[in-house]
Design a protein around this nucleic acid. Structure first.
Lengths: 205, 205
DNA sequence: GATAGAATACCTACTGGACGGTATGCGCCC
DNA sequence: GGGCGCATACCGTCCAGTAGGTATTCTATC
């Protein structure tokens, strides 16, 4: 382990640089040279750790799963947890290059289809599970289609994130998420539950 | 006009082929050769009509504006018109290659930023105007922020379209749009108006 | 309504550069 | 001293764009 300390550092540097470049340019327009330069690493070093551009991209996409796995649900009501998740994700999109790059690669379709679908599915599963718990807690309207609702929520967050990125470099992302929840919750949760939810972002725990 | 008949045909063929390839591959991964082949046209012909790859892409993006301009609002309530617009757009995404390519180029950011923002803005303006009329007609909840709502709606449609594309090649797009409206309308319109709206797709006029 | 000639529309062959990937070699730590 | 981690130089390919020539169609003049 110790002898790999340097190796691990360069690997991380490459991964970070790759995520940044993929985020800014997209997969096809990203060049290995730019990743090299930004990581401050030579070609030999990069290709020692990642055998191809595609493998590198897949490693970046993995970052998404890592973020989901590392996310800790608040000990609040399921619905409130879902709301908080959206804000936590929004902040990750603003600050964590790996998440940013990962999302862009997931959204761009063409080369990878398989892992992209898996990444999407990871999100939908998480949202759906929270919705399920919200239903069990009696927060949701009766008759809500959980699969449909989780599809709408993930899709809407995806799109809102995207338009915020194109129009304002994600600076207004938090606000837009707030607007989304404001409009979406009345169709989702029962009035008594709605009254107890804080739609705006809450202070980080 | 008559003397340009042939020229116009090839120009259209190129534009169509370009839209298809851009839709399938994205801007950077799209090659002029593939566009050439698919259009059944030679390089000289293409470069006579479009002087660069970028110019070609911009021409495709224009298709979006053309679609908006050619769209005719139904003579129904403003809110119903907005709902119908989403379905009409969904069908265009399923069937009209120019719209498909146009959307992908708009969503991919990087090279064009300026025209992309304009395209986005066109959509938001249209949605906002319909919302304004809906408010004037007393359909909306009081206190709805029109700018915020139009941002949420366009963003949500964008993202839902995208996830439908990645996950199911847009086959379930109509359904997903229906789910979106089902969840979104209660937070947007007043109960008496909601009762009069048909959320599902209506037969084409 | 034929003819010249001038645009217009298109074709083919080519070029320079950039890109992803590789081969080979060298130092440094266990 | 052996393999892990990295450096450098190089290769083949592909791509956007161009140069220069050719066909096609319109216009003008008779």
């Amino acid at each position: 382990m110790a002898r790999q300390a340097r190796a691990l550092a360069t690997r991380q540097a490459v991964l970070l640089a790759a995520a940044e470049v993929f985020d800014e340019r997209g997969y096809a327009a990203a060049t290995m040279s730019e990743i090299l330069d930004r990581a401050g690493v030579t070609k030999g070093a990069l290709y020692f750790h990642f055998h191809s551009k595609e493998e590198l991209a897949l490693a970046v996409i993995e970052g998404q799963g890592a973020w989901i796995a590392s996310w800790e649900p608040s000990s609040d009501s399921p619905m409130q947890t879902l709301i908080d998740l959206a804000y936590a994700f929004a902040h990750a999109l603003q600050e964590d290059p790996l998440v940013r790059g990962s999302i862009r690669l997931t959204i761009e379709h063409g080369s990878f289809t398989q892992p992209q679908i898996a990444a999407y599915q990871g999100w939908m599963d998480l949202v759906r599970e929270l919705l399920q718990r919200a239903r069990d807690a009696g927060e949701l309207h009766p008759g809500i289609d959980l699969a449909a609702a989780s599809g709408v929520i993930t899709g809407a967050v995806t799109g809102i994130q995207l338009s915020s990125q194109v129009l304002a470099d994600r600076r207004d992302l938090i606000q837009r998420i707030a607007h989304l929840w404001t409009l979406l919750l009345p169709g989702l949760v029962q009035p008594h539950a709605l009254a107890r939810l804080s739609v705006a972002e809450r202070a980080a725990s």
